[in-house]
Amino acid sequence: MSAVADSTAVAAVNKADVRPQRDNALLLVVAVFLVILGCWMLAVYRFDVPSYILPKPDAVLWALWSGLAVSPTSPIGYYLPLWGSLKNAAGGFLIGSVLGVSLGSLMAEFRTVEKSVMPYAFALQSLPKVAIAPLIVIWFGFGDGSKIAISALLAFFPMLINSFTGLRSVEPEKIDLMRSLSASRFETYRIVKLPHAAPYIFAGLDMAVVYALLGTIVAEFLGAQQGMGVVITQAQAITDVAGVFAALIILGALGIALHGLVRRAELRVVHWAHRNQK
């Protein structure tokens, strides 16, 4: 009973500790933003940096506005290309993650798989994967296939490495526990290893989700009918630098949103890991 009271008291104290810190962090973010904006305006208005190098902030704002304040089905808005890119990135993310965790699991469980696959995994990993993109376009064409494939490829590696590392880092005592209970290999995997690896896997997902988006955009640079990559290349073709900036801001916001989504899911699924650290 008293232990319950104690733990809530502790929680309250922690909250009180954390609050002002978070406010400070937010303040800092706002301050840095204002400084950047200030420098930007100074460069544009005071030092007359030409607008094909650095657009005026209001031009970027206008470009953003004209892309956002339209009907979702308008061909000049961001919504259709955003949806197109997101769809392919999500597909690649899903495929890459599932394959990454699957192969990571096989490698962690079976030494022979590890020994035979690991060298190739590392070789592929150290290859700048974006450089493979043109090859993939040749194989999969200019349609959705190549976007999904490149996204999957980029999402695959962080998932492979992280799930493998997580599964292998289980404390031997936990394995001993399952052995002492005559648990099967799969029971040990499902009940001990996979949950133990979950924080690692989420860290991988966090990277994979951004990589998948990156993969789709890069594939779109190489040729596509639709997507945020197309929006950027089209704006670039007519040196609409403000348009490029606006599209980049949209992608940045999307990246932050995706990161936030993964983070939320993580707090929900592996709550025990976070409270443990506290």
Partner: peptide
């Protein structure tokens, strides 16, 4: 078997 430091599964 009772392990040192409890060895509970945190999840």
């Amino acid at each position: 078997v009772v392990f040192q430091a409890a060895n509970l599964l945190p999840w």
